[in-house]
Simulated scan of single mutants.
Amino acid sequence: MDLTRGDIVDGRIKLRHLVCFLEVARLKSVVQASSVLGLSQPAASKTIQELEAILGVELFDRSRRNLILTSYGEVFQRYVGASLTSLKQGVRSIGQAGSAVIFTVGALPTVSASILPAAVMHFTARQLDMTPRILTGPNAFLMSQLRVGEVDLVIGRMAEPEAMRGFAFEHLYSEAIALIVRPGHPLLATPSFDMGAIGGFQMLMPPPGSIIRPIVDRFLVANAIGPLRGGEIETVSDAFARSYVRATDAVWIISQGVVIDDVAHGLLAMLPADTADTLGPVGLTTRADTPPTLPVQLFAQSVRDVVADRAGPG
């Protein structure tokens, strides 16, 4: 069958082929994709091989440790992602006929505790017949959900350039990391803060793969901090980190937005460290190939309004 004809799509291509392709492309691994999809590794491999046979091209370069998209694969990924997103939006539109419109916002921890609650209040106060569904999680998960249309908008720090392929980012503001401790921590009692002293305390760190981990690592190296004599704990759980820091002398390195309210209410304290070099962009991420729906556009405007109000005049 001639796949170059625009009015024909090979009926052998099934939804399972496309979903499996997108997950393998995202994770660069058949093993990891099969785990996410609930398939055996042989089944996932067979699905990709079937798709390549139907298309008549190789979608992945298998000469490296991780599976990398070929030029054909990169083009196909853009169209598959856009197609699945449009399909899901169409199904949602039919399913929501005559009822409130529901859309999904993905929020990274950096905004979940700061601007997001205010943005939701701002949006719902307009009494529109639209219901935001809030989904939180690590960046890789939210971006993958945005790519396949399960999430309509992601708010948070901008991902690494490689992960931003196919997405559009709107910068709203910049924020740095913070060194967080309990009120009354020994490091707060010294007349002049010594950055090197934090290495003697247990550290709560973002795990490898998180957006801010490379930023944290560069910060520690730049300040000659290491090895960490007090040891470290890697966590993505803000609830755990808050409780642990308040009960111990541990130092938690995290984006300022995650803990801004805790510090303002005296539940946690911020060490007077100069973290200006760790500033990173925070904003709105959408698909570049699919226009945002009206509910998403209106919610994005609520986010912008809240950010503008907090920034003040000028």
Rank of each mutant, 00 (worst) to 15 (best):
164 M>I: 01
284 L>G: 11
229 R>E: 14
139 N>C: 08
186 P>V: 13
84 L>M: 13
266 G>V: 02
14 K>L: 14
60 F>M: 06
123 F>V: 04
178 A>C: 07
148 V>T: 15
287 R>S: 12
97 A>Y: 12
32 Q>S: 13
110 T>S: 15
108 L>T: 14
241 A>H: 05
291 P>Y: 05
46 K>P: 00
31 V>R: 15
200 G>I: 00
285 T>H: 06
220 L>E: 11
204 L>V: 15
197 A>D: 10
102 I>P: 00
202 Q>A: 09
243 S>W: 02
273 A>F: 05
293 T>Y: 00
77 Q>P: 03
128 L>M: 05
104 T>E: 09
265 H>Q: 08
239 A>P: 00
250 A>P: 08
151 V>W: 02
180 I>R: 12
175 E>V: 05
66 N>C: 02
80 V>R: 02
210 S>R: 05
219 F>N: 09
226 G>K: 09
198 I>G: 10
193 F>L: 10
200 G>N: 13
195 M>W: 01
193 F>P: 10
66 N>D: 12
4 T>R: 15
19 V>P: 03
282 V>Y: 03
247 A>K: 04
115 I>A: 12
299 F>V: 04
86 S>M: 14
281 P>H: 06
260 I>E: 14
130 M>E: 14
270 M>I: 03
177 I>L: 13
224 A>K: 15
240 F>M: 11
121 M>S: 13
48 I>P: 06
259 V>M: 11
54 I>T: 11
201 F>P: 08
45 S>M: 09
233 I>R: 10
256 Q>T: 14
267 L>N: 10
267 L>T: 02
185 H>S: 12
89 Q>S: 02
178 A>M: 01
286 T>P: 05
253 I>W: 07
256 Q>N: 05
59 L>E: 13
37 L>P: 11
176 A>E: 14
33 A>H: 01
158 M>L: 09
171 H>S: 06
282 V>I: 15
101 V>I: 13
35 S>Y: 11
25 A>P: 11
305 D>H: 04
295 P>H: 07
261 D>A: 14
50 E>Y: 01
149 G>S: 03
226 G>T: 03
106 G>P: 07
23 E>K: 15
272 P>E: 01
